[in-house]
Every structure is written in C-alpha cells, then in structure tokens.
Design a protein around this nucleic acid. Structure first.
Lengths: 151, 151
DNA sequence: GCCTGAAATTTTAAACTTGAAATACATTTG
DNA sequence: CAAATGTATTTCAAGTTTAAAATTTCAGGC
C-alpha cells in the first residue's frame, strides 16, 4: 500500500469511508428503532427542525439534508400525521411552506437526541481529541475544495 | 471548538462525515446516471461480483454490502433481467444461490468502474499521500474497535 | 395589466431498502 | 429416522428516495 498510486488510494479510502458510514448508519438505525420506535430519516428531519429553532422552508430543509424536495415532503408528511411536526404557509411568498416541530415533537426529539448522542459517543469512543483534530483538518480540506460539488 | 467535550465533538464529527459521504454519493449517483445510465446500488453489486471474480452466495453479497438479504435479491433480480448478472443454484447445499456477472456484465462494469475511479479521484484530489495516511490510521482505529458492531 | 420565465412545493412512477414472514433445505438431537 | 432447530433465500408490506412532471405563485419586461 506504501507505493500505491494516488487514484487507487483515493478510491480505496472512499470505499472504506462509505463502508464505515453505512455500518454506523445501520447501527444507529437499529438503535433508534429498538429504543425509540423511529427511523433515521425521521430523526434527521426532526434534528434539522430542532436545530433551526424556528419554522424552516421545505426547500431549505431538503438542501440541508442533501435530499430531494419530494423526499422532504414525504417525511414531513408522516411526521405531521403523527403530530410531531406542523406545516404552515409562508407569510409573504404564498408558494412557501414552513415546517416546525410541535411541542410534542420537540419533547420526543430531545429524548431521542440525548440517547442518539450517547450512542454515537460509544461508537466513536476510540477517537480522542487528537484523532478528532486530524479528522477535522481532513474534513475541512475536503469541504473547502468541493464546496458545491458536494454539499 | 477547542475545549468542546468529547461526546459533542464525536457527534459533530459523525454528522460532518455523514454529510460528506451523502454529498459524495449524490455526486457519484448523478455521474453514473448521466454517463452510464446506472445507479449506485447496481454499481455496488456489480463491483462486489467483479471483485470476487467467481460466483458469490447471495448471503455473502448482502453481508459484504451491508444491506439486507431482500435488498440484494431485488437488485440482483434487476441486473439479471438486463442480462448483466446471472444466478445459478449452489452445487452442494440446495438452499444456496450463487450470482456472477455475465460476460456482458463484466464488460459493462469495467467501463463504468474506470470512469467511476477517475471521478472519485477528482472528488478527492485535495487529499495527498499524507492526508490519506492520516485517514487510513483513523479508519483503521475505528474498524478495529467496532469490529462487528459496525461491519 | 399581461406574458414569459423562474422558483417553491407537491405529485407521481419507479427503484431502493428494511424488517418480518414464508419457504425450502440442512443439521442436530432424541 | 423423526422432530426440532437452524440456515439460505425469497416474498411481502411499508417506508424511503430519486428524478421528472405538474401546480401554484412570483418577478420582470412589454
């Protein structure tokens, strides 16, 4: 591996990274299902709404989560049906739809988020400040360079 | 961020990593769709079959790709319908089903894979040997520790 | 004020994905 | 060997996801 060419190393690294995130997502999916009877996409949408702490445009939501508009609509629809989120028409522009967590949604999410954070902490417990620093530098480099091409 | 506690740093790093892989997957999905009229799951399955270079058990396939058995069945079914892969019953154990690329499938995949590798190389062109070394060490650490919990 | 083009969202069809149930075969145990 | 248990795969229902088409509204130019 020492003298492998760059393109091959980049490909292998990407495949390994992908594998790691898939495995982690699988673990977290099962965790959320067993402990909170919810799914990753629901959790992700609720996390984005909670983070915003004020109504979010559908288009901003899908942009933030890197999913299609149609997908955001579908997940929000189910959250709404369960009383966890609510949609309201935008004030000025009548095309706009804003979404926010309901009180129930906020309470439910906060319980989920605490456990989720603890589980992520467990999954990455082998990474200390030093490794996190190194990883941050690398992520920063990738984010800088791709800017738009990726997210 | 300097003096943020470890659990929070781990969570933020995970979210950033997830975002990076989502963005990269989105880019590669579009790339494969536009240039090779195919999808990521199809590509992944064909890559696993090509890599094995001999018929693969359905269960090994889904384990390798970290997807459910039902998912592997569905994707293989579509590849088979297009003449890119073929299923044959296992020799000894009659429950077993083996899958392999057809000649056409192999040829199609090799063309896709070359372009895919070049595109990944482009996406990660900001990472040189040094960063790849650092990333490898971190990935190794995570893989070692999670062993089973994740992959 | 109307027309044209752009933007925000939803709808739709098809594919993907999971988790659980069903099926078929194999292995162990009594 | 028969029953029970376990393994490999498929089937199924429901949810997720995308890409494209359809809707509705907005903004600018005429």
């Amino acid at each position: 591996m020492r003298d492998t060419d760059l393109p091959t190393r980049r490909l292998r690294t990407w495949l390994r990274l992908l594998r790691l995130t898939r495995g982690t997502e699988n673990h977290l999916r099962e965790y959320l299902r067993l402990n909170h009877d919810t799914t990753l996409p629901r959790f992700d949408v609720m996390a984005a709404l909670h983070r915003a702490n004020s109504p979010v445009k559908m288009s901003d939501l899908s942009r933030q989560l890197l999913v299609s508009n149609g997908n955001a609509t579908a997940v929000v629809e189910r959250l709404e049906k369960e009383g966890l989120a609510a949609r309201v028409p935008g004030e000025g522009d009548r095309r706009v739809v804003l979404v926010a967590l309901t009180d129930k949604g906020r309470a439910v999410f906060e319980a989920q988020a605490a456990d989720h954070k603890a589980e992520v902490d467990r999954l990455f417990s082998m990474l200390g400040h030093e490794e996190l620093d190194a990883l941050r530098d690398i992520l920063h480099r990738v984010e800088e360079a791709s800017d738009g091409a990726i997210g």
